[in-house]
């Protein structure tokens, strides 16, 4: 049975601790680059926490927003790919098939969120760090595009398990690495097609909004706006 996987991020709960970033790196075998390359903008973080300031000094507060691939329903990155490396799978995810990618980087230009990352170099891990690679996720070579998959390997594993046990996937059973690791449970993952799922209920909240909604990309990452942002806390 097809799902419509989505994520809700409660900005009131995000403390900007960046645990999600670390968890994502560990789960998805994301290559790291040295400081010089990172300074040139070649660091790869499928999810990253943006910090911005609200208010005037001295009444200033740091705000945080985790940004990842928005898994758009009308994704601008998909149709521009000449080799179908980027396409929409039946679960509504923006799939990225590494083997098909030839590295035109067109998808990355077309993505309004700049959520796609390019492998400028072949990935290297200092020994013995290569031993901690996740066997469920392929390692990407130089010259191809990658981005947040909503931890597709976990989704597939859970679906297989549920099928083996002859049952449906339960709400909250699939947890991408970032969701699992969030200490304040600011992130919730689930099926939008199930009206009773936690994600669906939160998505109906008055606070629900999407990033750059004016572009009509219909993201499946839904942010719950800060309630306190209008107040004087």
């Amino acid at each position: 049975m097809a799902h419509r996987w989505a994520m809700v991020i409660d900005l009131d709960r995000c403390t900007g601790c960046e645990t999600c970033m670390a968890a994502c790196h560990a789960e998805n075998n994301i290559a790291t680059v040295d400081a010089k390359q990172a300074a040139r903008g070649r660091a790869m973080h499928w999810i990253h926490v943006e910090r911005y300031w609200e208010g005037e000094f001295p009444n200033v507060r740091a705000r945080f927003q985790p940004v990842l691939c928005q898994q758009c329903d009308a994704a601008p990155c998909e149709p521009v790919c000449p080799t179908y490396a980027a396409y929409h799978n039946e679960d509504g995810l923006n799939a990225q098939v590494y083997n098909r990618c030839i590295g035109t980087r067109y998808c990355a230009n077309a993505c309004p969120y700049t959520a796609r990352y390019f492998n400028w170099w072949n990935p290297v891990w200092d020994k013995p760090l290569q031993l901690q690679l996740n066997p469920d996720v392929s390692v990407r070579e130089a010259g191809i595009m990658e981005k947040c998959t909503f931890c597709n390997q976990r989704i597939v594993a859970t679906e297989i398990q549920a099928k083996a046990e002859n049952r449906e996937v339960q709400d909250g059973e699939v947890k991408p690495a970032c969701v699992q690791s969030c200490p304040t449970t600011a992130m919730v993952f689930g099926d939008l097609d199930d009206p009773n799922s936690q994600v669906s209920r939160l998505a109906r909240s008055m606070r629900a909004t999407t990033l750059l909604s004016e572009l009509g990309t219909n993201p499946k990452v839904i942010y719950l706006e800060r309630e306190s942002s209008h107040g004087n806390d």
């Binding site: 009308a74 994704a75 149709p79 790919c81 179908y84 980027a86 396409y87 929409h88």
Partner: peptide
């Protein structure tokens, strides 16, 4: 022959 939807097109 290899139907792959993209971008809602």
């Amino acid at each position: 022959v290899y139907p792959l939807p993209t971008g809602g097109m």
